[in-house]
Simulated assay, not measured.
Amino acid sequence: MTTDKLITCVWFDLGQAREAATFYAGLFPDSHVGAVQNSPADNPSMAAGGELTVEFTVLGRPFLGLNGGPTFTPNEAVSFMVLTDDQEETDRYWSAIVDNGGAESACGWCKDRWGFSWQITPRALMAAMADPDRAAAKRAMEAMMTMTKIDIATIERARAGETIA
Rank of each mutant, 00 (worst) to 15 (best):
F63E: 00
F63D: 01
L64A: 00
L64Y: 10
G65H: 01
G65A: 02
G65T: 00
L66P: 13
L66C: 07
G69D: 09
G69K: 00
T71N: 14
T71K: 09
F72A: 12
F72I: 13
T73M: 14
T73P: 08
N75H: 14
E76Y: 14
E76G: 12
E76R: 14
E76C: 10
A77K: 13
V78F: 13
V78T: 11
F80R: 05
F80S: 07
M81K: 11
M81H: 13
V82R: 05
V82P: 00
V82Q: 01
L83V: 14
L83H: 10
L83W: 11
L83F: 14
T84Y: 01
D85N: 07
D85W: 04
D86Q: 04
E88G: 09
E88N: 11
E88T: 15
E88Y: 11
E89Y: 00
E89C: 00
T90K: 04
D91W: 06
D91C: 09
R92C: 07
Y93D: 02
Y93Q: 03
W94S: 04
W94G: 02
I97C: 03
V98D: 00
D99Y: 08
D99E: 11
D99W: 08
N100A: 10
G102Q: 01
A103E: 13
E104C: 08
S105D: 10
C107M: 04
G108L: 05
G108F: 00
C110W: 02
C110D: 00
K111F: 03
K111G: 04
R113I: 08
R113N: 12
F116K: 00
S117W: 13
S117E: 05
S117K: 07
W118A: 03
T121N: 11
P122L: 03
P122H: 03
P122K: 00
R123G: 10
